[in-house]
């Protein structure tokens, strides 16, 4: 009987809450998140507005709820891009001969050395700032870490005797990758995905804060932070609420990643 570890439970609960919040925001929010109401600017938290309102009189709670959609969208796009490129690349690097593999991995290192945010800003400058371009860039910047982790996992699988047996039976490399290697690195992919998800969420917040991420009026936690700058001393709650939301989301995905890693790690599992 496998026992669930605490980080897996905590991470799972946090992520579930964020997903639920995003789903609920499609059908119901306390107020229209983008509705500007000049009469109710910078209200303190109250029964009407639990988290208060911002300088345009928009309800902060509603913005955070709708903003979670952006956060999840960002994560899915970035992780999707990273996995779709990184996983095949990692498996390829594990299966080809020594020098092509070296070429792949050195190119990988080169990309790893390139700052992700800079890449995203460049993409924004070339293709126009939008959540999608920013996240495709963050996704590309996350490819190396995927490729690296998957390659080491795939190398282990390639050394097993069942792969040797498949080769001895005449299986070609591509079916081996598909039938033996990929299914046996799925746990690594899951773990890496949740960690990359957290990184992407943080990157989106940073980009929006810098003005290269999600353009207004779509609510985004990062842009809420940016807009709260001028009120940092008069109304710090405007920075605190989205800040906490970002911190909890990042923590949640990291915990989930850690928990999944512990659960999949056969060495920990076999311990009696």
């Amino acid at each position: 009987m496998k026992r669930l570890n605490p980080s897996l439970i905590a991470g799972g609960v946090i992520v579930t809450v964020i997903v639920l919040m995003a789903l609920v925001s499609f059908v119901w929010t306390p107020y229209d998140a983008t509705l500007v109401t000049p009469t109710s600017r910078l209200l303190k938290p109250s029964w009407e507005h639990w988290f208060g309102t911002d300088k345009f009189g928009r309800d902060v709670l509603s913005q955070i709820m709708v903003g979670s959609r952006t956060t999840l969208f960002v994560g899915v796009v970035a992780v999707g891009v990273a996995a779709v490129i990184g996983v095949p690349l990692g498996i390829l690097a594990a299966m080809v001969r020594r020098w092509p593999s070296e070429v792949i991995m050195r190119a990988n290192d080169l990309l790893l050395a390139f700052p992700a945010l800079l890449l995203a800003i460049m993409f924004g400058a070339v293709f126009g700032a939008s959540t999608l371009t920013a996240m495709v860039a963050i996704g590309i910047a996350s490819v190396p870490s995927f490729a690296r982790v998957i390659r080491s996992g795939a190398l282990q699988v390639m050394r097993t005797e069942y792969v040797l047996a498949a080769r001895a039976a005449g299986r070609q490399p591509f079916p081996i990758a598909l039938r033996h290697v990929l299914p046996n690195v799925t746990s690594l992919i899951t773990v890496q995905a949740s960690v990359s998800f957290a990184i992407a969420v943080l990157a989106e917040a940073a980009l929006s804060f810098l003005g290269y991420g999600t353009p207004p009026p779509t609510p985004s936690w990062g842009r809420m932070l940016q807009e709260s700058q001028e009120f940092l001393f008069t109304a710090p709650r405007l920075a605190i609420f989205p800040g906490i939301a970002i911190a909890i989301a990042v923590l949640g995905f990291n915990l989930l990643g850690d928990g999944l890693r512990d659960r999949f790690d056969p060495k920990l599992e076999d311990r009696r």
Partner: peptide
């Protein structure tokens, strides 16, 4: 055909036994 030493690593843990045994047939 080959039979290997390690009974743990010689069978793909993600495949059912019948698919493992049928693999050489499918390949050929």
């Amino acid at each position: 055909q080959l039979v290997f030493q390690d009974p743990m690593s010689s069978l793909d843990p993600r495949m059912r036994v019948r698919d493992i045994i049928a693999e050489p047939l499918v390949v050929q």
